[in-house]
Design a protein around this nucleic acid. Sequence first.
DNA 1: TATTTGTTTAGAATTATTCTAAACTGTTGA
DNA 2: TCAACAGTTTAGAATAATTCTAAACAAATA
Lengths: 149, 149
Amino acid sequence: MITMEKVFSHTRQNDSTQTLTKKLRGVGLRATRQRLDIGNLLFSGKDRHVTAESLHDEAVAAGIRISLATIYNALNQFRDAGLLREVLVDPSRTYFDTNTSSHHHFFNVDNGHLTDIPHDEISVSCLPTLPEGQIIDGVDVLIRIKPDA
Amino acid sequence: MITMEKVFSHTRQNDSTQTLTKKLRGVGLRATRQRLDIGNLLFSGKDRHVTAESLHDEAVAAGIRISLATIYNALNQFRDAGLLREVLVDPSRTYFDTNTSSHHHFFNVDNGHLTDIPHDEISVSCLPTLPEGQIIDGVDVLIRIKPDA
DNA sequence: TATTTGTTTAGAATTATTCTAAACTGTTGA
DNA sequence: TCAACAGTTTAGAATAATTCTAAACAAATA
């Protein structure tokens, strides 16, 4: 059977790709095949936490041809552009979070799993005076959890 | 002039060394020359934030002969023993804090400086339910600050 | 479509940290 | 006091995450 999908498959782009292209252009990045592939993995679905390695493994498993260096480049560019947030949990690895809104994390020290805590479920009262001439850039709350007993 | 200090200098230890020795033995570590030297740098004075490199530089500058590997070993052992706390601020470097009590940090993203925030100057209300069977291991609040304007 | 400029990539380089195995030292018990 | 053992230190090698390099390539632009 011949469908319009097939006929135009070499020119048509699906919705997420169009959206992504706009998103990338919006932050001054060219919509290259690699950045679109990474973007599709990251931004189509629920929020995610990834490392360069984990994302590369996932891309490889999905049959996407992309070098690890490109993953590193893209993650750093996405973070600089505000499309991703860096999360500090493990001094030996850099985690990125697709949820860039103000929120916090549970970090399971036993297995390394990271879970979001919605912004409204934690309140930080910040009484301390900031050092002279400084302003707040961001507040991170990390609640380390471990198995009971 | 001959003083008792000099006469017994090969056997006598100063107060901080005696205290340190007890502290180390108390956590099951032998009071070796290297651990005492590091301990003296870390625990005699106000609270400090160090990295392995910074502490090694400091030791070298003070004329202490100690290898970087030993600094790494000692910092990790001290942390495991609860004498130090690891602070997550920079994914490319591990910071240790001599203040092991419950408290939080300002991190100046501009120059990498870390400052303690006393425990009572921040309050975190943790409404979220913990994942099944998990308990809290610790709560870290990091307030990233930067120069105004 | 030719040119320019930004991007990707393999592989080398870098950096923080850990490992290895040999020399050394603190501790213990006789 | 000292032998013997177990824990410690160390130089240098190894590892692992990340960045760099510079050549090939692709997107934007005129």
